[in-house]
């Protein structure tokens, strides 16, 4: 890129920021980074490999990745239509509906777990119906996925709805006048145009699912290979083997960093 084609880029550094903003910005960054550095200093690197490859660690990591992926898929399947309905249609009680959908964002996850328990648990609202169908959710991997989906869904809906609103309806209107049916408009115009927003929403949802703890331990329980995800394993290891907890925490940080970096890169390439 030459200067002449992107004058804004060349001019950017000269845009004056008040110099004092760098102080709180740096302090804030330090506040986030320093604990990670502190954790790094606590790792016993000689045992790191053994700690993170123990059977229970591998089982927890595999379960975490598997369930987070599954819940991200569920978030997309339900979250995309939810975001489209919230952004594009008008119905009575819409603002209430939006607030309710976003509630898990501000709710403590434990509360979410309790709510799920009273809905899908054995004695819950739907417990009897599920029992009749032969479905027992509690203590199963499915319960982990449900807990993760519950807390991660709003992240996807929020970022996608934002992308839809920013994008506006201009292209969809044109597509309609070109004879495209609503489904065609949705699949060939709406979705491709919000793909970056959808990608970042899905990453946020995945990251949130990966870190989910409170709702899982309340609703799904904790059993190696079945419901004990990485955060639960870390919390348990803390009891007996703080070294292992630190090592596993580092693995979680690494996985999250990799996911976020990969997506950012693919987005800038887009």
């Amino acid at each position: 890129m030459t200067r002449s084609t992107r004058p804004g880029h060349a001019a950017y550094p000269r845009l004056g920021l008040p110099s004092w903003v760098f102080v709180p910005a740096a302090l804030g960054a330090l506040f986030v980074v320093l604990p990670l550095v502190a954790m790094l200093t606590q790792v016993e690197w000689s045992q790191f490999g053994a700690l993170v490859t123990s059977e229970s660690s591998r089982a927890a990591l595999a379960l975490s990745l598997k369930t987070s992926l599954a819940s991200t898929v569920l978030c997309i399947v339900f979250g995309v239509p939810m975001a489209v309905v919230l952004a594009r249609s008008r119905f009575p009680g819409q603002s209430v509906a939006r607030s309710l959908v976003l509630l898990p964002l501000v709710l403590p996850p434990v509360v979410g777990g309790i709510a799920l328990l009273y809905t899908f648990g054995r004695r819950g609202l739907l417990g009897h119906e599920l029992d009749v169908l032969g479905l027992q959710v509690a203590f199963s991997t499915a319960a982990v996925v449900m807990a993760q989906t519950f807390v991660a869904l709003p992240f996807l809906v929020v970022s996608l709805e934002g992308a839809l609103r920013t994008g506006g309806q201009r292209f969809e209107e044109v597509a309609a006048t070109l004879g495209a049916r609503p489904t065609t408009v949705f699949l060939r115009v709406t979705l491709p145009l919000v793909l970056p927003g959808l990608a970042s929403g899905a990453v946020l949802a995945f990251a949130r699912a990966l870190g989910e703890f409170g709702a899982t331990i309340t609703f799904a329980g904790s059993l190696q290979g079945v419901t004990r995800t990485l955060p639960l394993e870390i919390y348990l290891q803390r009891e007996t083997d703080p070294q292992a907890a630190v090592a596993l925490s580092l693995v979680l940080v690494a996985v999250a960093t990799i996911v976020i970096t990969l997506t950012r890169r693919s987005r800038t390439a887009l």
């Binding site: 328990l117 329980g221 059993l223």
Partner: peptide, 20 residues
């Protein structure tokens, strides 16, 4: 063959109280 190995007594008790 437990269905769950909880972090503490409170979590165990919670699951029994809830009937899970």
């Amino acid at each position: 063959k437990p269905v769950s190995e909880e972090q503490n007594v409170t979590d165990v008790l919670g699951k029994v109280i809830a009937g899970e």
